[in-house]
Amino acid sequence: MILSGNQVKKWYDLGEVRVDALRGVDFAVKAGEFVVIQGYSGSGKTTLLNIIGGMEAPSAGEVYYRGQAVHLMNERERTLYRRQGIGFVFQFYNLMSNLTAWENVQLSVEIAPDPLPADEVLREVGLAGRLDHFPSQLSGGEQQRVAIARALAKNSDLLLCDEPTGALDVETGIQVLGLLCRFNRERGKTLVVITHNPQIGKLADRIMFLKDGLIVKNEVNLRPLRPEEVAW
């Protein structure tokens, strides 16, 4: 197991009101597995991904990455964990608006312990001709490919994606998913994608259904499809 969670809970105290985002989630992800966490808005998907990625600490429960207790890490250790172990891809790309495509990827290269060269990764995601373009000069799909390149350049084992196609049209979405699947299959990277789109689950090895902060179903996909096979 590369990643596991045991009774993970997260609540937010908003003055007199307590909002329970996760109410005791158990999960396990194998190395090289492609897992989709599916659920409606407000089901706790992003919170779970944030906790897995060391972006915030759980209120209760345990999370392990390669045997390391992520839930016990302090701020500094979590930073190191994100730096060495995790690549993130966000729905809205989150690129630095005043850095070029190459420079955005280089940001990852500069801090990772064993990175891949920025231009090589950008070539792999099909942006060899766009290295010097600023985000505002790129289409949404291209921006998301830069964001994926930025996550991949770290050469980390775990790739966490938060609605990676949420802001894209179908055609571009298929290209982006194809890219993610390729890295999962060919390079053996573990891929966790959260989405509300049921079609994406058909590409994954396993789908976890999240509802009201609980995993309500854990479904193994014996025959994952390729992105172009899915009817969008």
Partner: peptide
């Protein structure tokens, strides 16, 4: 704020 968030998410120390 968002840019700081992404730098933090990437593992840039405070």
């Amino acid at each position: 704020r968002g840019q700081i968030g992404i730098l933090k998410a990437m593992g840039y120390p405070d």
